[in-house]
Computed example of a mutant assay.
Amino acid sequence: MADSDNSRDRGGIHVTNTGGNVTIGDNNTVTSTVNGAGPALDPGQEALLQAIGKLRADLAGVVPSEQTAALDEELSDAEDEIEATGRAGAGRLRRLRQALTDAGAVTGILASGVAVGQAVGTLLGG
């Protein structure tokens, strides 16, 4: 047996070519990227991206309206911007906040809508 194979017998951990997120031990952070490409996200942007995904999934189950269609478009644009650049800019966040307000009858009763609103508020500083 070669020396490099012996290290595996001593209780070490060897991880190669993971297809997703891997964390080992306590107090670790997982940062998502698409296929390993794209910028790393700060925790606020990561929280917004996750909340957007949940809200878009929830919106698929509601009766569509002009407001929910506009909101879904803003959510999609914000998602694309975060994945491409690592962050949603202030202008995008303000448009998203307005779309949430406009679709308030729906987003106010969805926990995912509240989560997006909170994440946007945090990133805008208020």
Results as ranks from 00 to 15, higher is better:
Q50V: 10
L123G: 05
L49A: 08
L93R: 00
G121S: 15
N21Y: 01
V106I: 15
Q50M: 06
D3F: 09
V120D: 00
T68F: 04
R56A: 15
V63T: 15
G89I: 03
A70I: 00
I13S: 13
G91M: 00
N21S: 14
G121I: 06
D77T: 14
Q50W: 00
N27F: 10
G126E: 06
I13R: 12
G36D: 02
E73R: 13
A2G: 08
G44S: 09
L59G: 05
T107C: 09
D102F: 09
K54A: 14
E73D: 09
G20D: 15
D26K: 09
R92I: 11
A84Y: 07
D72A: 13
A111K: 12
I24R: 07
D9R: 12
V15F: 04
E46Q: 15
L100Y: 07
D72K: 11
A119T: 04
A40Q: 08
E81V: 11
G36W: 00
R97W: 00
G125A: 11
V15M: 08
G38V: 02
I82Y: 06
Q98Y: 02
A111R: 11
Q50P: 02
D80L: 07
I52H: 04
V106H: 03
E73F: 09
V15E: 01
L59N: 07
D72F: 05
D5H: 10
P43E: 14
G108F: 08
